[in-house]
């Protein structure tokens, strides 16, 4: 790897990290798992003067209870989320999404927080995080602020994060039941999602009392399939109802992505199929 030369910092505390970022601002880049940043450095598509490695900051590599929900620290890897008992108990959708990401090496190093900070439109995490109403906790020189995941991710590769800010954790505000699923179609080279759908639902007497559907990979940014949710809310979820509702996915987005891996029409079709499958799988779970 032959990136442009940079200075490497490994601060010992979050405060120290924020302080370094304050000094260098946009010239600095935070390094977590490095599985998005390092490829970009190697290709010289990113050339920060300073790299601030937060992967070993104390306390950040933990999943903790937070109120009735839980908090996922910035150092928590995809792999941890696959195996963490708290996640499995309080937020099974996260545990079901994690194994769908990349391969073993990627999961061993890459982080959930790194993924949402990178905001790749094909990343998996935004789908379940939208469905779970996740909150992103940001720290900066001016203190702390919290953004809903939907506000946090702006568009392709862009977030509301300022150059001198760090995401400390992602908070899932409450516990969710096991009726959830994540379904994706992988791009065969990278493993990223050509389309991915996360569904979290709650049932009462065979009826769907609440449903949240996050869709990723098919548009500039992940989104909640609100129209579909509305049709399914309170409905009895049989295959026909679900299939009918899923058709509305084309109305949820203006422009489906189109690239060398999949056309817009194909993505739209996949989104529809995956919504059906994910809802059915969530029902069965």
């Amino acid at each position: 790897m032959i990136p442009v030369a940079f200075d490497y910092h490994r601060p010992r505390t979050l405060e120290e990290a924020v302080d370094i970022l304050r000094q260098y601002g946009d010239e600095a880049k935070v390094l977590a798992g490095g599985h998005s940043l390092i490829p970009a450095l190697k290709l010289r598509l990113a050339a920060p003067k300073v790299v601030v490695d937060i992967s070993r900051l104390p306390g950040l590599s933990e999943v903790r209870r937070s109120g009735s929900g839980l908090s996922i620290g910035a150092g928590v890897t995809h792999h941890q989320l696959m195996v963490d008992p708290l996640i499995a108990k309080l937020c099974p959708l996260i545990a079901r999404t994690a194994p769908e990401i990349g391969d073993v090496q990627v999961r061993n190093l890459g982080t959930l927080v790194g993924s949402i900070c990178h905001a790749d439109p094909a990343a998996d995490w935004p789908a379940p995080l939208l469905a779970l109403e996740a909150q992103v906790v940001i720290v900066g020189p001016e203190g702390e602020r919290t953004l809903h995941i939907n506000e946090f991710i702006e568009g392709m590769l862009t977030t509301r994060l300022a150059g001198h800010e760090i995401v400390r954790e992602v908070v899932i505000p409450r516990a969710y039941p096991a009726s959830c699923a994540y379904k994706k179609i992988r791009q065969s080279a990278s493993g990223f999602a050509i389309a991915g759908v996360a569904v979290q639902l709650e049932k009462k007497n065979r009826k769907c009392s609440s449903i949240a559907i996050g869709v990723t990979g098919v548009a500039q940014r992940a989104f909640r399939a609100r129209l579909i949710e509305k049709s399914l809310q309170g409905a009895e979820l049989d295959e026909k109802t679900i299939a009918q509702a899923a058709r509305q996915v084309t109305e949820e987005v203006n422009d489906f992505l189109s690239d060398l891996h999949a056309s817009a029409a194909y993505r739209a079709a996949l989104a529809q199929v995956l919504v059906q499958r994910a809802v059915l799988a969530a029902l069965a779970a």
């Binding site: 290709l43 791009q187 080279a189």
Partner: peptide
């Protein structure tokens, strides 16, 4: 060449 890396060329 659009498949210039292994993220786009699927071995």
């Amino acid at each position: 060449l659009l498949t210039g890396t292994l993220m786009d060329y699927a071995v």
